[in-house]
Simulated scan of single mutants.
Amino acid sequence: MMSPSPRIILASTSPRRRELLAQLAIPFEAVDVEVDETPRLGEPAEVYVARVAAEKSLQGQCEGAAALPVLGADTEVVLDGEVLGKPRDREHGEAMLKRLAGREHRVLSGVSLRFGEQHWQAMSESRVYFRALRDAEISAYWNTGEPADKAGAYAIQGLGAVFIARLEGSFSGVMGLPVYETAELLSRVGIDVFGESQCRDER
């Protein structure tokens, strides 16, 4: 059986974003994009996340099928107003987890959708509360390999979940692609996860 033709382009090869988008049962094609994710001097976290998501969708539009909507996203862990990013190495990753331990932090997940010359954006904000962590736990967690490529050095969908005492917001947003906001944006181009409508360009 042939796979259905893609209806959108996902400007990401993140396995987590592919998994979340697949939940919506919308055929898609994933393309790899590379953008400069260096925060600008004095750039607020919300502005940074929205900008990076928008740059990813723009790059995806250049590399993907121009006739299809293009979805880009960026998810960041924010503590005391600082975007933590991904750990550079073990020392950096363990230091991140020590900072998060016993505290509340924010997770911002921005989504950007482009279709033709149209552009829509949405933002999900969640609050995550970590329990206190022992140094031995942090070291053992790093040894699993899970934190190495994750924003904030943890994965809510993996072993990192044992550190989370409470979540206020979107599980899928913390994971990497807020499903609610994504579905809302896709409806702008006529893609209804429960319907048969076709893509349309809003003018």
Rank of each mutant, 00 (worst) to 15 (best):
S124L: 05
G176Y: 00
G116L: 12
R18N: 04
F194E: 01
R203W: 11
A153E: 08
M1F: 12
L10H: 05
M123S: 04
D192V: 06
P4S: 14
F28W: 07
S3F: 05
L113P: 01
A161P: 03
R166Q: 15
L68A: 06
R131D: 13
V49M: 10
A50R: 15
A53E: 07
S57H: 00
Q118A: 15
A140W: 11
E202P: 15
R88Q: 12
R134P: 01
A30F: 09
G60E: 11
Y129L: 13
L108W: 11
M96L: 15
P87S: 10
F171S: 01
A148C: 13
V189G: 02
P87R: 02
T144A: 08
G64Y: 12
Q118D: 12
R127Y: 10
Y154W: 13
Q157I: 10
P4Q: 08
E37G: 06
P69H: 09
Q23L: 15
V35Y: 02
V49L: 06
S109K: 03
E125M: 10
R18E: 08
P69T: 10
L24I: 10
I26Q: 07
D149Q: 13
D135G: 00
D135R: 06
F171R: 06
R131P: 01
R7Y: 07
D36Q: 10
L159F: 10
S170R: 04
L24R: 02
Q59V: 04
L133K: 06
V77F: 11
L79H: 13
A165S: 13
G42H: 09
F115Q: 05
V35S: 00
S124Y: 02
A54E: 04
G173W: 01
F163V: 07
D201H: 11
P44V: 00
P39V: 15
Y141L: 11
P147D: 07
P69D: 12
A165G: 12
Q121L: 02
A136N: 15
S57W: 02
E181T: 01
Q157M: 13
P15E: 08
R51V: 05
A11H: 07
E34A: 14
E146V: 14
I156S: 05
A148G: 02
A161C: 13
R188L: 07
E29Q: 14
F28G: 09
R17G: 03
P178K: 04
L97D: 12
G176P: 01
E19K: 11
G110Q: 04
A136M: 12
G190C: 06
G72K: 09
G158T: 12
G72M: 03
Q61N: 00
R18P: 01
I138H: 01
F163K: 09
A25L: 06
T75Y: 13
Q157R: 09
R16P: 00
A155Q: 05
V128G: 01
V83C: 14
K150G: 06
E55I: 00
L97C: 14
A151R: 10
A122W: 01
S112T: 04
L97P: 09
A54C: 07
L186F: 03
V193C: 03
L97R: 06
F194W: 12
A122K: 05
G152T: 12
R16L: 07
A53G: 14
P39Q: 14
R103M: 10
A136Q: 14
S124I: 03
C199R: 11
I156N: 03
V35D: 02
V31W: 00
A54P: 01
R40A: 11
L24Y: 08
V162C: 14
A136Y: 10
